[in-house]
Simulated scan of single mutants.
Amino acid sequence: MAMMRAAFYDSYGPPEVIYVGRAPVPTPRKGQVLVRVGAASVNGGELFARAGRLRLLTGRRFPKAVGIDFAGRIEALGPGVRGVGAGEDVWGVLPRGRMGTAAEFVAVDAGRVAPIPAGLDAIEAVSLLAGGTTALTGLRDKAALRGGERLLVRGAAGGVGSLAVQLGKVFGAHVTGLASARTGDFVRGLGADEVLDYAVTGPGDLGRFDVVFDTVGGRLPEFRRLLAPGGRMVAVAFDASRILRDVGYLFASVVHGSRRVRFFSGDPRRELLDELAVLVGDGSIRPVVDTVRPLSEVAVAHRALEDGGVRGKQVIAI
């Protein structure tokens, strides 16, 4: 049986619970492709899962795998696969609730992969993937952001926020980014019209916005009050220490009031990947790589993202 290297953890805890072990190379089932992974990235939801803050959803069965997005090359096809072939360079995101791309190989439904945008390598491509599809869905489909509107991006330097800033400008909005002082110049370089230090700028110091895009979580009522009449707030993260309060608040916002809050978790398929590739191809958005690390340093990448202050993505080169 062919074996591969992959990242796992055997108990919930800090980043250091992650280790690189060995597992059988998966066999693609009907409708699946086997991808030799070139790169994966670290995403915020994985930190919560690994720390055990979502254990009611993730359960207590171990070991658990690591990684949700990937860029690589198709190695083999399962029965019944059409439209793609071995040797093609592709990118994709695993279905909601599944992890395992921090590994040398991953088997995934063929409908969840699409060609990597021309001119990008695996590392550049994966830095755009989960953040880009989340920001595109949140701003275009959930918030219906329009030209001339005022957009606030909370967590503007991170893997999702850095793409939201770029897409906000694509849609013609006036973009204000909330980020740390040390990442301010980075966020301005992405096109933000204004960047404010979240350590010294609270919600009460801000004006009105048509759309608030929140990648941080927590303090949702305070940021919702910044919405102009008819404003929309899109939350793509929870403060895990206050998750029940946040969920209750989101539910109430759907029922009451004109300033609505929406939460969603991305689950992109090929159509959305292709739409993102068009934006990459015409230069509307660009890769946002903070640091590239080998598979052996997955835990270090988790720690770096958890500590904050990153500029774009922590990428794992397989």
Rank of each mutant, 00 (worst) to 15 (best):
V33P: 10
V280A: 14
P294M: 14
Y19H: 15
A118V: 11
V211N: 12
P28R: 07
L244R: 04
L273I: 00
F8L: 05
P24M: 06
R262P: 02
A65C: 03
S162F: 06
G204E: 12
D290V: 10
M1V: 09
K142W: 14
P115Q: 05
L163G: 09
G283V: 12
G138I: 11
L206E: 10
D239V: 03
T137F: 05
V298W: 01
F70V: 15
N43E: 11
A125C: 14
D10Q: 11
G191N: 10
R50K: 10
G168K: 12
R269F: 03
L34F: 09
R73P: 00
K142L: 14
D121P: 08
V153I: 10
T133E: 03
Y198T: 14
L178W: 01
A39G: 11
K142V: 14
G21R: 05
K142S: 04
G308Y: 14
A23C: 04
I18W: 06
A156V: 03
V33S: 13
R245F: 04
I243M: 11
G92S: 06
P268D: 05
P117Y: 14
A49I: 09
A71I: 01
T215A: 07
V175G: 04
L279T: 00
F48M: 04
D205N: 13
L227V: 10
G283E: 03
T134W: 02
Y12C: 01
R225C: 01
E75K: 08
G138Q: 04
V33N: 03
P95M: 09
A304E: 03
G283S: 05
L305D: 04
A103C: 07
R270N: 00
F48I: 04
V175R: 09
I68R: 10
S296N: 11
G119Y: 03
R259K: 15
F264Q: 05
L56K: 01
R242H: 15
V90H: 05
D282Y: 04
L145F: 02
A173P: 10
G59P: 06
D214V: 02
A301F: 00
R146C: 06
D239P: 02
K64H: 07
F251W: 13
S162R: 11
G202A: 09
A76K: 13
A65I: 00
V234W: 09
A156C: 07
V170I: 02
R269W: 14
G159V: 09
F209C: 02
L244P: 07
S241V: 03
M4S: 11
P221K: 09
L295T: 14
V289M: 12
V37A: 04
G67F: 02
G308T: 06
A102V: 13
R269L: 01
R61N: 00
L305A: 14
G44R: 07
T215P: 07
V35F: 01
L178Y: 09
A199N: 13
Y12M: 06
S258P: 15
R262S: 12
L56H: 05
R224P: 01
A102L: 06
P28Q: 07
V261S: 14
A110T: 06
V289G: 03
R112S: 01
V234F: 07
V280P: 12
G202P: 08
I74T: 11
